[in-house]
């Protein structure tokens, strides 16, 4: 859904990025990387990084609102970009998408404790993806497990996803600016692995988006 113009002031000038995933995947860190990139490129940003009890494997989200917002809230139908580090969590964010939302999601499931305890299966991936597509057709999927394996950087899933996001050219700064922010905030010994993950993520996203069948012209 789209919101009436009378809604939150100057909404048009803003880019609202919602990052979702599971505790431990690096959702907060991804948001901070984006925040750092905004700072370095002179874009005002507000970051929401509530964590509550979510470190314990629960659903986590962070928000990055670029462009002079007063609050970091992203509500129903307001997300311009959704970066999903886990497919079920991306689907959970669906009410906050609108028809033009650009969605990038990992396709590597993290099975919720509750499902495994009850012996129930994880919902079929194709169903998850088509449900997301029904709300936001501009969907880029990423086999993040394969990418971090190839990069040899087990914990760089969030950075791989940022690489993919940067490749979509929706951010107000180039991929290189995002990478230097990531590099600046990453401990020395992880930089090389993260770099490979960032680049592989970017390449995978480009490969998927370039034909872009049915993508709405914008």
């Amino acid at each position: 859904m789209t919101r009436p113009e009378a809604g939150r002031a100057a909404a048009a000038a803003r880019l609202r990025i919602l990052i979702v995933g599971v505790g431990g995947q690096g959702v907060l860190t991804a948001a901070r990387h984006l925040g750092e990139a905004c700072l370095r490129t002179g874009h005002e940003a507000v970051l929401g990084q509530l964590h509550g009890m979510s470190q314990r494997g629960g659903s986590v989200e962070s928000t990055v609102v670029v462009g002079g917002a007063e609050s970091s809230f992203i509500e129903e139908g307001e997300a311009d970009v959704v970066l999903g580090l886990e497919p079920l969590e991306t689907l959970r964010a669906r009410p906050r998408m609108h028809a033009q939302t650009r969605v990038v999601t990992s396709t590597t499931p993290v099975v919720p404790h509750l499902l495994s305890q009850m012996g129930k299966p994880y919902p079929p991936l194709p169903e998850i993806l088509s449900a997301i597509r029904a709300a936001a057709p501009d969907l880029t999927t990423l086999d993040s497990a394969a990418i971090v394996r190839q990069a040899g950087a087990r914990r760089a899933l969030n950075v791989a996803m940022l690489g993919a996001l940067a490749a979509l050219e929706v951010l107000p700064f180039p991929a290189a600016a995002l990478w230097s922010a990531v590099a600046a905030r990453t401990p020395e010994r992880f930089v090389a692995g993260n770099r490979r993950a960032f680049e592989l993520g970017g390449a995978a996203a480009k490969a998927r988006t370039s034909p872009a069948p049915g993508r709405p012209a914008c």
């Binding site: 009436p4 599971v22 009890m53 959970r92 919720p112 404790h113």
Partner: peptide
């Protein structure tokens, strides 16, 4: 300024409480 929107919760998904 605007009607209250329904609660933005995706229905029927397996919840992921902290553990």
């Amino acid at each position: 300024r605007e009607a209250v929107l329904e609660n933005p919760v995706e229905q029927g998904l397996a919840p992921r409480p902290p553990g």
